[in-house]
Design a protein around this nucleic acid. Structure first.
Length: 838
RNA sequence: GCGGGAGUGGCGGAACGGUAGACGCACGGGACUUAAAAUCCCGAGUCCGCAAGGGCGUGAGGGUUCAAAUCCCUCCUCCCGUACCA
C-alpha cells in the first residue's frame, strides 16, 4: 500500500463535513476554546503559502485542543469591505460584489483543501447587508453614547485612494494601503472619540497574554505623558496662551514661546511689521506634505512681533511660530527652554535666542555641595552657582534631572520636587495645573468611497443630524455601475440621487443621507462577536452566546495589525462593555503573531516577504496536488519557530513529505504486534517523545514538535528492523500526528481497524507515564576542568563516591588525572561529573 | 536618535547554566538497477593526524562560574517598530 494522499485526503474532509465535526456547539461537559484567525480580505490572487502559515498554526491548536477535551470554535470569514477589494475591482473593471464573490469562493476552497477545521456554518462576510446592518448599528451605539461626532477639520487625505484616512492608516507620511504621500484636506467627517479611552486602553493591556512588542507598540501609540498646562499672558492683549510642558520645573528658563503655525491666536497677535513674513511662513508650511514635514531638517520659524509674560518671573519673552510645534498635540503652543530641550536648543541657536540654564548638571551640583553650599537656601545656591558656573558654556542642552538653579525660591530643589512645587504655585494662582496628555487622536471613520457600509445618518433642515432608527437598518449600499471615487472629497454615493434623497425619520420631511461610508476597520472591530452568535437575526448577538464563547482564547494573525485592528477592537469592546452589551473588557486573551514566509525572487537577491507583486509567491494548490496537504501543513510548521520569519525552500517540503511517507510505510508494512507495548526500550523512548511533543505543543513550539515526531519515527523504523512494534505504540504516534497531519492520521487510524475517525470519537489523548521513563543506568558525562573527556554508563543505584571511583577507572580519565591533584569534584546527579584539577 | 528582536556548519534551524550543531535540506560514499530516478545504508563543524587522539569553535572583546550559545559589561552587524509629541 503506497502512500497516496490524493486517494484519501478529500475523503476525510468529506467525512468531517458530513458529520458536522467542525461545527461548534455549546457543551456542558467540555470547556470552550475560541481559536480565531484574523479574517482575510478576499483577494483575487487567492492564498499563497505565506498566508497558510498562520492558518495551519491555528488549525493545529484547534485540533489539539479538540482532542484534549475542549469544545473548540474555530470560525472563518471575510473582511470584504474596504480599499483592497474595491481597488482590485476597479483595476479589473469587475464590480466589487462580483469580485468579492469570486475571491471568497476560491479562497474558501483553498482553506478547505488545507484540511482546516473551520466552522463554515458561522462564516461571516462583512459586505453583506445582514452583516453591515449591525456594523451600522454599532456606529449608532457609539453615537448614542456620545462617542461619535462630526467635525470639520483638516484630515489625512490620500490623493490616490481619494479618501480620508485615520492616523493609524498613515505610515511614514504615506497611505498604508497604496503608499501615496498623504496630504491634508479640510472636510466634515465623522470621528469616534477613542481618546476618551486612552487611559483604559493603556491600563487593561498589561494583563493580556500578548507579545510584549505589540503591547508596547500600542502603549507608545497612545503616548501618555505627564506634565502641566500653564497660562501665559500676552503683552498688550487680553488674550492668554495655554501651553503644555512636561518640564514645569524649567519654567524659569523659558526664553521664548512657540505657537504652531495653525494656532488660532497667530493672526490676532502678529504685529503689522511681521504680518507679511508670518503669513508667508504659514502658506509655506501648509503646502508641505506629511513626508516633507517628517524630514528632520533645520529648524524654521518666524517671529510674530508679540511677547508673552512668563507668569513666574514677569519676563517678556518673544512669541514665534514654527512648524516643529504641532497643532494636533497638547495645546499647539509651547514655552521654549533651550537650555534643557534639544529642539528648543536647536531653534534658539538658529535664531540667536537667549538660553537660560535653570537646572544644574550633576557635576555642578556635586561641586557646590563639596563647597558646602546649603541647598535649602535658594539665594545661596544661586549666588554660588553664578560665581562658579555662569561663564560656562556647553554645547548640548542638558536634560537630565538634577538640581534647580536660577529659579528664585525653587533654586536648590531637586527637579522632581520642583515640578510639584511649581505646579502647586501655579494652581494657587489659577494659572496652571498638572495635566496628562495623550498622543492618540480621535478615530476618523468617514470614507469617501463606495465599497463600505453607508453611514446611517440623515441630515434634515429642521431636525439637523438624525440617526437612522434601528428598525430602518440596514441603509443599503445601492448597487451601481459607476462607483469610482470622485477625487474631490465627495463620495461616489453623493451623485446617486435616489440614495441621497430620503425623508427625515424624525419629522418626515425631506432630508439627505450622509453619503460617506464607514471605514472597514469598523467591520473588523466586532466580527469576533458575530461568529459566536452567527444565527441571531434580531440583534447583532445574543448575550448568552458571547457570554459562552467570548472572549477569544487565542487570536492568530500578522503583526501588521498591532495598532490598527487590535486597537480599534479593544476600543469597541470597551464601548460595548460600557453599554452593558458585553461582559468583558478585552476581546482577545492571547495573541500570537506568526512570522512571515519569505522567498528569494525568481531574479535572485535576498529573501523577501512573499507577495504577488514581488513575483515570489508559492501557490499551495499545486503543492497539495503533488505532496498532499498533510506534508504542506507539516512543512509550514517545521520551517522554523512560528513567531519568526522563515524562508521557503522547495526541497524542505520534500523532506517532510519523505518523513510522512516513511511513517505510512512503517504503519502499513512494518512488523506490528497486537496489544500493548512490551519492549522496554520502545516504551521508554516512546514515552520520552510523548512527553516532549505534548510539552512543545502546549508551548506552540511546533517546529520542534515535528522534529521530535521525526526522531521518534526514525527510532521506530530502525528498531523495527529487528523488533516488532506493538499496535499501541503506533496508535499513540498516529494520535499525536493527528493535529499536524489529520488526513493521514485518520486514514491510518481506520487501517488499524478503528470504527469512526479520530476527530469523531476523540480517543484518549496520549500522555507519558513517568514509570516508563525510568532507567537503571545513565550516561555520565565526565569532565576535567569543564571539558568533556569521557562518557560512562553508570547504575543509578550507586552513591556519588562509587560513581567517582568508577569515573576514575576510565583509562581516558585516568590519563588526564595522572600527576594532577583533584581540587574539587562537581557532581550533577544522573548527568555529569566534573573534576577540577590543578 | 530612541525602543524591540536577532547574529550558531554549505543552508533552515536544535540546545530549563551541564556532551554545541538534534531534526531536516543540500553534499560525498555505498547498496539496488543494464542505466537513471526513487528508495535504503554510511559519512560529514573546522584544523593537525594513516589512526587513536588532540587543538580551535555559537558576530568581536572582556567578565562571573567547577562549567557560558545561554548570565553581566563594552562594541559591531542585520531586521522590525517609531520618530520635531514639548
Amino acid at each position: 500500500m503506497q502512500y497516496d494522499p490524493a486517494s484519501f485526503e478529500q475523503k476525510w474532509r468529506d467525512i468531517w463535513e458530513e458529520k458536522h465535526l467542525h461545527h461548534a456547539v455549546k457543551s456542558d461537559d467540555r470547556p470552550k476554546y475560541y481559536c480565531l484567525d484574523m479574517f482575510p480580505y478576499p483577494s483575487g490572487e487567492g492564498l499563497h503559502v505565506g498566508h497558510w502559515r498562520g492558518y495551519v498554526l491555528s488549525d493545529v491548536v484547534s485540533r489539539y485542543m479538540t482532542l484534549n477535551g475542549y469544545q473548540v470554535m474555530h470560525p472563518m470569514g471575510w473582511d470584504a469591505f474596504g480599499l483592497p477589494a474595491e481597488n482590485a475591482a476597479i483595476k479589473k473593471g469587475i464590480h466589487p460584489v462580483i469580485q468579492t464573490e469570486a475571491a471568497t469562493s476560491n479562497m474558501r476552497r483553498q482553506l478547505k483543501d488545507m484540511g482546516s477545521m473551520y466552522d463554515w456554518e458561522r462564516e461571516v462576510n462583512s459586505s453583506t447587508p445582514e452583516y453591515y446592518k449591525w456594523t451600522q448599528w454599532t456606529f449608532l451605539k457609539a453615537y448614542e453614547l456620545g462617542l461619535a461626532y462630526k467635525k470639520d477639520a483638516p484630515i489625512n487625505w490620500c490623493p490616490s485612494c481619494a479618501t480620508g484616512l485615520a492616523d493609524e492608516e498613515v505610515k511614514d507620511g504615506c497611505c498604508e494601503r497604496c503608499g501615496t504621500a498623504v496630504t491634508k484636506k479640510g472636510l466634515a467627517q465623522w470621528f469616534l472619540a477613542i481618546t476618551k479611552y486612552s487611559q483604559r486602553l493603556i491600563d487593561d493591556i498589561k494583563d493580556l497574554d500578548w507579545p510584549e512588542k505589540v503591547k508596547k507598540m500600542q502603549v507608545d501609540w497612545i503616548g501618555r505623558s505627564e506634565g502641566a498646562e500653564v497660562l501665559f499672558q500676552i503683552d498688550g492683549f487680553e488674550d492668554t496662551v495655554l501651553i503644555f510642558t512636561t518640564r514645569p520645573d524649567t519654567l524659569y528658563g523659558a526664553s521664548y514661546m512657540v505657537l504652531a503655525p495653525e494656532h488660532e491666536l497667530v493672526s490676532k497677535i502678529t504685529t503689522p511689521e511681521q504680518k507679511e513674513e508670518v503669513e508667508a511662513y504659514i502658506v509655506r508650511t501648509s503646502a508641505r506634505s506629511e513626508v516633507e514635514r517628517q524630514e528632520r531638517k533645520d529648524k524654521t520659524g518666524v517671529f510674530t512681533g508679540a511677547y508673552a509674560i512668563n507668569p513666574v518671573n514677569g519676563q517678556k519673552i518673544p512669541i514665534w511660530i514654527a512648524d516643529y510645534v504641532l497643532m494636533g498635540y497638547g495645546t499647539g503652543a509651547i514655552m521654549a527652554v533651550p537650555a534643557h530641550d534639544e529642539r528648543d536648543w536647536e531653534f534658539a541657536k538658529a535664531f540667536n535666542l537667549p538660553i537660560h540654564q535653570v537646572v544644574m548638571t550633576a557635576d555642578q551640583a556635586k561641586s557646590l555641595k563639596a563647597d558646602g553650599v546649603d541647598f535649602s537656601d535658594s539665594k545661596a545656591v544661586d549666588e554660588a552657582w553664578q560665581k562658579k558656573f555662569a561663564q560656562e558654556l556647553y554645547e548640548v542642552p542638558y536634560c537630565e534631572c538634577g538640581w534647580m538653579v536660577n529659579s528664585e525660591e525653587f533654586s536648590g530643589y531637586k527637579t522632581e520636587e520642583g515640578k510639584k512645587a511649581i505646579i502647586a504655585k501655579l494652581e494657587a494662582q489659577s494659572i496652571g495645573k498638572s495635566k496628562v496628555n495623550y498622543r492618540l487622536r480621535d478615530w476618523l471613520i468617514s470614507r469617501q468611497r463606495y465599497w463600505g457600509a453607508p453611514i446611517p445618518i440623515v441630515y434634515c433642515d429642521k431636525c439637523g443630524i438624525v440617526p437612522v432608527p434601528e428598525d430602518q437598518l440596514p441603509v443599503l449600499l445601492p448597487h451601481v455601475e459607476h462607483y469610482q471615487p470622485s477625487g474631490t472629497g465627495a463620495s461616489p454615493l453623493a451623485s446617486i440621487e435616489e440614495f441621497v434623497h430620503t425623508t427625515c425619520p424624525k419629522c418626515g420631511g425631506p432630508a439627505k443621507r450622509d453619503t460617506d461610508t464607514l471605514s472597514q476597520w469598523l467591520c473588523s472591530s466586532w466580527y469576533f462577536l458575530r461568529y459566536a452568535s452567527y444565527d441571531c437575526q434580531d440583534k447583532p448577538w445574543r448575550r448568552e452566546d458571547i457570554d459562552y464563547w467570548n472572549p477569544v482564547d487565542l487570536y492568530v494573525g500578522g503583526i501588521e495589525h498591532a495598532v490598527l485592528h487590535l486597537l480599534y477592537s479593544r476600543f469597541y469592546t470597551k464601548m460595548f462593555y460600557d453599554l452593558g452589551l458585553v461582559g468583558f473588557k478585552e476581546p482577545f486573551k492571547r495573541l500570537f503573531n506568526q512570522g512571515m514566509i519569505t522567498k528569494v525572487p525568481s531574479w535572485g537577491g535576498r529573501s523577501i516577504k512573499m507577495s504577488k507583486s514581488k513575483g515570489n509567491v508559492v501557490n499551495p494548490d499545486s503543492l497539495v496536488e503533488k505532496y498532499g496537504t498533510d506534508a504542506l501543513r507539516a512543512y509550514l510548521l517545521f520551517i522554523g519557530p512560528p513567531e519568526l520569519d522563515a524562508e521557503w525552500i522547495d526541497s524542505g517540503l520534500e523532506g517532510v513529505y519523505r518523513w510522512i511517507r516513511r511513517v505510512w510505510n512503517l504503519a502499513t508494512e512494518g512488523k506490528i504486534v497486537e496489544g500493548e507495548e512490551k519492549d522496554p526500550e520502545i516504551l521508554r523512548t516512546s514515552h520520552k517523545f510523548i512527553k516532549k511533543i505534548n510539552d512543545d505543543l502546549s508551548r506552540l513550539h511546533l517546529n520542534t514538535v515535528v522534529s521530535a515526531m521525526m526522531e521518534w519515527s526514525n527510532f521506530l523504523i530502525t528498531k523495527n528492523a529487528s523488533t516488532p512494534i506493538a499496535k499501541e505504540t503506533l496508535e499513540n504516534y498516529i494520535l499525536l500526528l493527528a493535529p499536524i497531519a489529520p488526513h493521514v492520521a485518520e486514514e491510518l487510524w481506520s487501517i488499524f481497524g478503528h470504527e469512526g475517525g479520530i476527530f469523531e470519537t476523540r480517543p484518549t489523548w496520549p500522555r507519558h507515564d513517568e514509570k516508563y521513563l525510568h532507567e537503571d543506568e545513565f550516561k555520565l558525562v565526565v569532565q576535567i576542568n569543564g571539558k568533556v573527556r569521557d562518557n560512562i554508563m553508570v547504575s543509578k543505584s550507586l552513591s556519588q563516591e562509587e560513581i567517582e571511583a568508577k569515573a576514575k577507572e576510565s583509562s581516558k580519565i585516568a590519563s588526564f588525572l595522572e600527576g594532577k591533584t583533584i581540587r574539587k569534584v562537581i557532581y550533577v546527579p544522573n548527568k555529569l561529573m566534573n573534576f577540577v584539577v590543578g
